[in-house]
Write a protein that binds this DNA or RNA. Structure first.
Length: 428
RNA sequence: GUGGGCAUAGCUCAGUUGGUUAGAGUAUCAGGUUGUGGCCCUGAGGGUCGUGGGUUCAAAUCCCACUGCCCACCCCA
């Protein structure tokens, strides 16, 4: 049997209503903040990610789906969206059309890691990017958007974490401080952390090894050593979150793994998804556009993992999307009426009703069971005595009531069904 | 890349110290009087017990290898 590639998953029809629900919330909330949807290709030239995300990062170093195409170009399935959005922003000179551009997206991403709970090789993210302003209003706005989307999905066990990494100059100073602090303790660190000491000291904070965290207890914190401007912006972000009633914690150990971040970084984690608890992560990247060859343009953004969010929803039982009803099931009482039933079905479908009937020549009982299983609001019986006298029986499946309708009158029937649907939605 | 666990019907799982035609629930299909659903009842189909090898008179059960899945580490969404 041929199976889906390791780390990929089919999204089957019975899960689609959850996905559509999430997508519609993402769309509505971003639109209310005037973010415009952007779609970029599924793959890019490899150098875009290498330069954008950083050669030293794990994503670029060991997780990218990279291959050489038939023309000899090295291409890579996108492992994240920010680099692609920035590329499109530069390529189409969007910064020249208007000073501030706000984008959102929903898209699959690819990283070749070992799958586990909340981690796949093809996974899906939605996210937002705001390009063209250093204003911390945008940092806060994006946190608010992300939080609102998660709340709208009914999630409760959420923690918003924020931190500031400062501008590159202050961060370099801080790295020196941290290295000095760790210098004589280096031999006590775990093997991984010793590697991080040379590669990227900041990430020692990510270590889950207890002895490492013990050593870090008295380490200098980046938040105490950032520049004045970053400090001021961070205060503004906190003020806005306070005013907007977004609960948050300052996590001085929140150091994000991608090279392009500066100043504000943030993460929203859930206690309901296992070990990979980050539902959402983001931050400011004021130097990325210039680094990728555009004119210097500040930016800020976040990405959220859809599979992790839906997993959290499932574990919190926060989504109760009812299975989709159909409007009408046409039951055939006589075997030789197949084409009549088919034609009637077409008529109602033209009225935009969701209609189904039997294709398998099954018994009336089986057809009724099917209608029930499909949650049909109405059943229309075709055949028998009333059919001979030019009438059809229409049955309301929730009340059991039946009424006779003149055959040619598709209009009346769809009117009855539609008024029933409207009164339904009013009740809700 | 490293470590641990698991692999029996579409799905969730039972299968005792190796011993007859491998079971249940659920789902599917058909029936429960000739034209009407949900509940209930009856019946049917469906498994090369992950794959390959070994031990044995005898393997779903013991041993080995392989593959796949799950979880965790690294890192991230």
């Amino acid at each position: 049997m041929i199976k889906a590639i390791t780390g990929t998953k089919d999204i089957l029809p019975n899960e689609i209503s959850d996905w559509k629900h999430l997508e519609s919330i993402v769309n509505t909330i971003f639109t209310s903040f005037n973010y415009k949807e952007i779609r970029t290709p599924i793959f890019e030239e490899t150098s875009l990610f290498a330069r954008g995300i950083g050669e030293e990062t794990d994503i670029v170093g060991k997780e990218m789906y990279t291959f050489i195409d038939r023309s000899g170009t090295s291409v890579t399935l996108k492992p994240e969206m920010t680099a692609s959005v920035v590329r499109a922003f530069i390529e189409h000179s969007l910064g020249k059309l208007q000073p501030l551009n706000k984008f959102f997206y929903i898209s699959p991403m690819f990283r070749q890691e070992r799958p586990q709970a909340g981690r796949q090789r093809q996974f899906h993210q939605f996210g937002g990017e705001a390009l063209g302003s250093t204003s911390p209003l945008l940092d806060a706005e994006l946190i608010i958007i992300a939080y609102q989307i998660l709340i709208s999905l009914g999630l409760k066990d959420l923690t918003v974490k924020i931190n500031s990494l400062g501008i590159p100059a202050s961060r370099e100073n801080y790295k020196k401080l941290l290295r000095d602090y760790l210098k004589d303790k280096k031999h006590k660190l775990s093997e991984d952390s010793r590697k991080r000491y040379d590669m990227n000291v900041l990430r020692i904070f990510d270590s889950k090894v207890e002895s490492d965290q013990e050593i870090l207890k008295d380490a200098p914190l980046i938040i105490d050593h950032i520049d004045e401007e970053s400090k001021r912006d961070f205060e503004i972000v906190k003020e806005i979150l306070d005013k907007s009633n977004i609960p948050y914690e300052i996590d001085p150990k929140l150091v994000r793994g991608l090279d392009y971040y500066s100043k504000t970084t943030f993460e929203i984690i859930s206690g309901k998804v296992g070990s990979q608890s980050a539902l959402c992560g983001g931050g400011r990247y004021d130097l990325l556009v210039e680094q990728l060859g555009g004119t210097a343009t500040p930016g800020v953004g976040f990405a959220a993992g859809i599979e992790r969010i839906l997993l959290a929803c499932e574990n919190e039982k926060s989504l109760n999307i009812p299975a989709e009803n159909i409007d009408l099931y046409v039951v055939k009482l006589d075997e030789n009426l197949s084409s009549e039933v088919f034609d009637l079905g077409l008529k109602f479908r033209k009225e935009n009703l969701a209609v189904e009937f039997d294709y398998l020549n099954r018994s009336v009982k089986a057809q009724m069971r099917e209608a029930n299983k499909l949650k049909a609001r109405f059943v229309l019986f075709v055949g028998g005595d009333e059919y001979k006298s030019g009438k059809l029986n229409l049955k309301n499946m929730s009340t059991g009531d039946q009424q006779l309708i003149q055959i040619p009158d598709a209009g009346i029937i769809s009117e009855i069904i539609n008024s029933h649907i409207h009164s339904d939605s009013k009740e809700k």
